[in-house]
């Protein structure tokens, strides 16, 4: 057996170990009720739709890192969410949200959020030249 094969073999073993380690921190998307039942303090991802009819509160004068709104998760459950950040630009336009966070004192507290806004390719709206 060549030396290089031994080293390559060792590297492959290392790669497999890293692969297993990196697979171990993968999660799945949770629903609110599943996330609430988690014992450990880890952050999980919850996917859902923004409840546009519910109130969205952002009062930077009081706390610039607290934005609260409601989201309906994939199971259809609607919950209040606190995002530990500012209210993002064009938030009202977003539809699907992916939140990363955990339950703190009974409220899902997100530290990160990915918004999906309807793309210009999808909407059938034709911009009509406005009269000024």
């Amino acid at each position: 057996m060549k030396k290089i094969h031994i080293v390559a073999g060792l590297l492959l073993i290392g790669a497999v170990v890293l692969l297993i380690i990196s697979t171990s921190d993968l999660g799945t998307y949770y629903t609110f009720s599943e996330a609430e039942l988690l014992e450990d303090n880890r952050n999980v991802k919850v996917i859902g739709l923004l409840s546009k009819d519910k109130e969205m509160v952002y009062q930077p004068e009081i706390d610039p890192n607290r934005f609260s709104f409601y989201m309906k998760d994939e199971a259809g459950e609607e919950r209040q969410v606190i995002l530990l950040s500012e209210k993002p630009q064009d938030f009202e336009m977003s539809e699907q949200l992916v939140l990363t966070g955990r339950f703190i004192n009974g409220v899902f507290t997100a530290r990160e959020m990915l918004m999906k806004c309807p793309s210009k390719y999808q909407d059938d709206e034709i911009f009509v030249r406005s009269e000024i």
Binding site: G14, L18, L19, I21, S22, D25, L26, G27, T28, Y29, R42, N43, V44, K45, T100
Partner: peptide, 19 residues
């Protein structure tokens, strides 16, 4: 099947790319 997802991309990638 429940989709698998990376919970924290930065630490996920860093922990193997570091080596």
């Amino acid at each position: 099947y429940a989709s698998k997802v990376i919970e924290d991309p930065i630490s996920h990638y860093n922990q193997h790319q570091l080596w």
